[in-house]
């Protein structure tokens, strides 16, 4: 049975995606992205992936969107000018994306997905433990990558501001 809350989140996601696709204003698309991300977090909650939802909101909706907004701000010609971007190849892009969508739908139609059980385990603790036991290597690497990305981004950004 489809629950109401699902529909809400679905609709929010769809609306957000629709806005992204149809708008010409860059900043509007970033805002719509934020909406999509938040609604996706809600869907994660419904999928019994609480930590993921929290991490999504924290990092995606908080970090990535802010970064994108900063990017928009830094790449404007003059102040007060809205960044308008027009699209090209829309028909071809539509065809391709439609094709991929249909293919994926066809693929997924044969999939079997089990129903979600709301479990009562402490997900945060479990995932934390698994980080440090099963996925320790990935964890360390992720930390390393983060460090490198941080340093690199900072350096690149510094370079661009030194004129």
């Amino acid at each position: 049975m489809i629950q109401f809350i699902q529909i809400v989140f679905f609709l929010l996601t769809l609306i957000g995606v629709g806005v992204i696709v149809s708008t010409k204003n860059v900043i509007h698309s970033v805002y719509a992205l934020a909406l999509v991300l938040v609604s996706l977090a809600g869907i994660y909650v419904l999928l019994n992936a609480e930590l993921l939802a929290i991490v999504q909101i924290l990092l995606y909706a908080g970090g990535v969107v802010i970064l994108l907004v900063f990017g928009v701000m830094m790449t404007r010609r003059g102040s007060g000018e809205t960044l308008i971007s027009e699209s090209k190849n829309s028909i071809l892009a539509l065809i391709i994306s439609l094709a991929i969508f249909l293919l994926l739908v066809y693929l997924f139609s044969n999939a079997e997905v089990e129903a979600v059980n709301i479990s009562s385990i402490d997900q945060v603790k479990e995932i934390g433990v698994s980080f440090l036991t099963d996925h320790i290597v990935a964890f360390e690497l992720i930390a390393f990558v983060l460090l490198v990305a941080l340093v690199g981004a900072a350096y690149l950004a510094k370079m661009s501001s030194n004129e």
Binding site: V21, A93, L94, S97, L104, F108, V113, V116
Partner: peptide, 30 residues
Amino acid sequence: ELYPTYYLYLSAFLFGAGIFIVISKRNVIF
């Protein structure tokens, strides 16, 4: 019980939309 297949369709939809935007938009932020 949730009807899980819709999530897959949503995922496919998101993927298609993302492809569409990557291909057809001209701004880098887009």
